[in-house]
């Protein structure tokens, strides 16, 4: 039993990994193309999601920066809709896993099924095998199931019955979790939160935005008419472009200082993984802004959403967000 969407007709690579086929050179897209793709996706998603421009931008940079997103908010503010419209815009396989307390790891990863005809076990890929995977209400599943998802997120591969299978590329998880009903949820362990590049809050729309939203959705929902603006292969190449964006030494040093500040001023500070994620997000943002190099402004624009959920304080009055805000205020940009 599963709430996951049935596999679509798109053929997915589910074969176990061959060591050889690892490094095929990906041709990066020109910078300007990536910039315009970013703008296009943003415009496309904005047709469905009213307001929340900055959140949309953050999701797009995560997509380009090879990261995963955790949307943390009350139900009904459009988390799922955001994920779906993003997936639709890039013309990728979109999978959705509805996490429930009784969801099993195999419900996520897939399972070997005995084929009566071939007399062999055949791998039946789970819903994790998609380019964009929406993990809905991820905090409702028990930790065991959560960890199945999280392995996939980190390694971009799943292991079922001893066989490791590579996940399709691009692979981006957009998970949501409910901020209400804390009693009936399994909070994501801190170590697993770390695997999300960003934790975003949608929040309620502005009154004007909400009126606009209502106006758009009374007839056919705009998501039904949404068309893709790019395709999977282009996205892969765009990601390659982003990964080649120059990060100069002063910026790396700045990121190090930021992470160091959180470590000094909080119980648990940003991990090195967090610093890497911050740089990747900053790279993506630089590209969105039409630059082939990262400036401290890119870092500053991303730091709040990238670092806050990785910082844990003992002080009830100051959460990770406050610490990161302090870091941005106090850590000198130039050495």
């Amino acid at each position: 039993m599963t709430d996951a969407d049935p596999p679509t007709d798109t053929v997915l690579e589910t074969t176990p990994i061959d060591a050889d086929e690892q490094t095929e050179a990906i041709d990066p897209l020109p910078l300007a193309r990536v910039e315009s793709i970013g703008t296009d996706i943003e415009a496309n998603v904005a047709r469905v999601i009213v307001g929340h421009e900055s959140v949309i931008e953050h999701v797009i940079t995560s997509l380009l920066g090879r990261g995963h997103v955790l949307l943390d908010d009350v139900p009904g503010v459009g988390k799922t809709m955001l994920a779906r419209s993003i997936a639709t815009s890039v013309d990728c396989t979109f999978r959705r896993i509805q996490f429930t307390p009784d969801l099993l790891p195999t419900d996520v990863t897939g399972v070997n099924v005995f084929n009566q005809q071939t007399r062999e076990f055949e791998f039946q890929p789970g819903p994790i095998f998609g380019n964009i995977v929406l993990g809905d209400e991820i905090n409702r599943a028990p930790p065991k199931t959560q960890s199945a998802l999280l392995e996939a997120m980190e390694e971009q591969q799943v292991t079922a019955d001893g066989e490791t299978r590579s996940l399709p590329s691009p692979f981006t998880v957009i998970a949501t979790q409910n901020a209400i009903e804390p009693n009936r949820t399994y909070d994501l362990p801190f170590a697993e939160l770390d695997r999300f590049m960003k934790k975003l809050h949608l929040g309620y729309p502005d009154p004007e935005d909400e009126a606009e939203l209502l106006g758009r959705t009374v007839g056919t929902h705009p998501i039904e008419e949404l068309e893709s603006v790019t395709d999977r292969e282009t996205l892969v190449r765009a990601r390659e472009t982003v990964s080649r964006v120059e990060v100069a030494e002063p910026v790396r040093a700045y990121v190090t200082r930021l992470a160091g500040y959180t470590r000094e001023n909080a119980h648990i500070g940003a991990s090195p993984r967090g610093a890497i994620a911050l740089l990747r997000a900053a790279q993506a943002r630089a590209v969105i802004n039409g630059r082939d190099y990262v400036t401290p402004d890119d870092v500053q624009a991303e730091a709040a959403v990238v670092l806050s959920h990785r910082v844990k304080t003992n002080d009830r009055t100051r959460d990770g967000q406050a610490i990161v805000a302090d870091a941005l205020e106090q850590v000198p940009v130039d050495g």
């Binding site: 401290p296 402004d297 940009v333």
Partner: peptide
């Protein structure tokens, strides 16, 4: 300029 401010900001 404040130390936490980047050149552009």
């Amino acid at each position: 300029r404040r130390p936490g401010e980047s050149a552009r900001s």
